[in-house]
């Protein structure tokens, strides 16, 4: 190829190749910009449309009846946090302990199957979870309830938390485990007192990310928590939630409700994004410590 006679031809070829290189670099850069454009647009419109509707009433008041303007979605904001709390009660212990099994015990083959199935469960459409829990809890209990809403979100958390906990626990150096075992500490105490505390920050990160993910879930709540125009008194009552309220307001024909949907969406997005960004700072700290 490096024949002297071909020198001229090679140099035109060379500039063509450089040109192609430049074109592809530009093209991929444009694609990268295209990808984040929706995020910027969504955020811009939410701020523009939602910000002016946010005031103290919005956080503390109940929705006003159709036709009256004003009011708030206090019950939906509280409802979302109650549902997340219930979900965490179910999803965190099961997910974390399952992750411990995958990382610390188990046989290669069984663990492969559990991982594989958990990954598939993560891909099950959220609406499917909704009708499953409707059949499981709402029908036997003769009514929609906050309990069913918490259970469906908790079930969705289990495979998420399990997989990420496992990955975090595997980052704990094996030397920790070996040192404890060499001192005669039994395995379960090694795990509970050495391995889990070493990975605690990471586990909390996973749990928060899982909560941020399910906080925006709407479809599974439609057939379980249902939504509620009032404050829910008991866990067996239907309960309002932010995503549900946003959806109901968005598809309604009233301008005032559209306005509130934008404001609600802004609150929900800020909640979800602040967890995501906050967690990033937590993990940045951790990787820095590990490097030192």
């Amino acid at each position: 190829m490096a024949n002297l006679n071909q020198h001229n031809m090679n140099s035109t070829n060379h500039s063509w190749r450089n040109f192609k290189n430049g074109v592809m670099q530009t093209l991929t850069f444009v694609c990268a910009i295209l990808v984040i454009t929706p995020l910027v647009l969504v955020f811009y419109h939410l701020l523009w449309q939602g910000f002016t509707s946010i005031n103290l009433d919005f956080f503390t008041q109940l929705p006003k009846p159709t036709g009256e303007t004003g009011g708030g979605i206090g019950n939906a904001i509280v409802g979302t946090f109650v549902l997340l709390g219930e979900a965490a009660l179910l999803g965190v212990p099961v997910g974390v302990l399952g992750g411990v099994y995958l990382s610390e015990y188990g046989t290669t083959k069984l663990n492969w199957w559990i991982r594989f199935t958990a990954d598939i469960l993560n891909g099950v459409p959220s609406i499917t979870w909704g009708i499953v829990v409707y059949a499981l809890l709402v029908v036997p209990m003769h009514g929609f309830s906050a309990l069913a809403g918490g259970v469906v979100l908790g079930m969705m958390m289990i495979p998420l938390v399990m997989r990420t906990t496992e990955e975090i626990l595997q980052l704990v150096p094996n030397g920790y485990r070996e040192a404890a075992l060499a001192l005669g500490v039994v395995k379960w105490r090694t795990i509970v007192q050495i391995v889990i505390p070493a990975a605690l920050k990471g586990i909390i990160t996973c749990v928060l990310l899982a909560l941020a993910r399910i906080a925006g879930e709407t479809a599974p709540l439609m057939f379980t928590a249902l939504g509620n125009q009032y404050w829910s008194q008991k866990l067996t009552d239907p309960m309002a939630a932010l995503p549900l309220q946003i959806f109901n307001y968005a598809i309604s024909p009233y301008d005032d409700w559209h306005r509130q949907a934008w404001a609600g969406a802004l609150i929900l997005l800020l909640l979800v994004l602040s967890i995501n960004v906050g967690v990033r700072f937590l993990t940045r700290d951790r990787s820095r410590q590990r490097n030192n």
């Binding site: 990808v35 984040i36 929706p38 995020l39 969504v42 939410l46 879930e217 968005a250 994004l273 995501n276």
Partner: peptide, 12 residues
């Protein structure tokens, strides 16, 4: 962007 809830993208 991956974290933006579906219902918010729908609203937009």
């Amino acid at each position: 962007l991956a974290a933006v809830p579906s219902v918010i993208l729908g609203l937009w």
